[in-house]
Simulated scan of single mutants.
Amino acid sequence: MIDLYTWATPNGRKVSIALEEMGLPYEAHAIDITKDEQFDPAFLKIAPNNKIPAIVDRDNGLTLMESGAILIYLAEKSGKLLPTEPVARMKTLEWLMWQMGGFGPMLGQAHQYLKFNKGKAPFAEERFAKEVRRLYGVLDTQLGREQYVAGEYSIADLSIWPWASRHEWQEISLHDFPNVKRWYVELAGREAVQKGYHVPKFTQDIPMP
């Protein structure tokens, strides 16, 4: 049994969607970051960096933070969504790292400047708007070559899709990126994605292009 500490954010949804796709039993615990619950001492024992998501594996007592590390761990635990063949495995990890190092952080900055603080920092708005479009272009090119990001459906897709689900916050029209749109809509139709998206609570329907 996995205890999942999470909130309705792209990083949180990565893990809840993965748990649903992998069929691993879990219990979700809401950490309301709008009320600073991520700074609670009990949560900090699990996630010293005071960020969601985090997990505790009751089977072995492991505590784990950082969504990318959690995805790898759950994939290895379940034997799903991470290839064992060395080349395919590394391609999956390559795109997972692309999300962790670029797509997620840059889109997160775009949210701050394009949605929550519009008009306060024109240079930052322009910089992150351009970078967001560049990253979507990279993703669109890759998805023009492959059905899924790393070839087969994997944790790479699960790491990227929740961030793309906030395309409206990023002032992105998925119609400008047809391969991303095709992939995004396909994943949005998966039962596990729909269930995981609404953990730990319903906030809105999945945004569709």
Results as ranks from 00 to 15, higher is better:
Leu93Asp: 02
Gly61Lys: 05
Met65Val: 07
Lys91Cys: 02
Arg127Leu: 09
Pro122Lys: 04
Trp95Gln: 04
Ala88Trp: 11
Pro53Ile: 10
Lys118Gln: 03
Ile33Ala: 00
Lys45His: 08
Gly108Asp: 00
Pro86Tyr: 04
Ile72Gly: 05
Arg89Trp: 12
Phe103Ser: 00
Ala75Met: 03
Gly119His: 08
Val56Phe: 07
Ala54Ile: 01
Glu76Arg: 13
Ala54Gln: 01
Tyr73Phe: 15
Met106Ala: 03
Arg58Leu: 10
Phe123Gly: 02
Ile72Cys: 11
Gln99Trp: 03
Gly101Pro: 14
His29Asp: 02
Trp95Gly: 01
Tyr113Gln: 08
Phe103Met: 10
Gln109Trp: 12
Ala47Met: 10
Phe43Asp: 10
Ala30Leu: 07
Gly101Trp: 11
Met97Arg: 02
Thr84Asn: 13
Gly104Lys: 03
Ile70Glu: 11
Ser67Ala: 13
Trp98Arg: 01
Leu82Arg: 00
Lys51Tyr: 15
Lys51Trp: 10
Lys77Leu: 11
Gly79Val: 12
Arg127Ile: 02
Leu64Val: 05
Met106Asn: 00
Thr34Phe: 09
Leu44Gln: 14
Thr63Arg: 09
Phe43Tyr: 15
Gly102Tyr: 07
Leu96His: 02
Ile72Leu: 11
Met100Leu: 14
Ala124Asn: 13
Met90Gln: 14
Leu74Val: 12
Ile52Asn: 06
Pro122Ser: 04
Asp32Ser: 03
Pro53Lys: 12
Ala30Gln: 09
Phe39Leu: 15
Val56Glu: 14
Lys77Ala: 04
Gly79Cys: 05
Gly68Asn: 08
Ala28Pro: 07
Ala121Cys: 14
Leu107Ser: 13
Thr84Leu: 14
Ala110His: 00
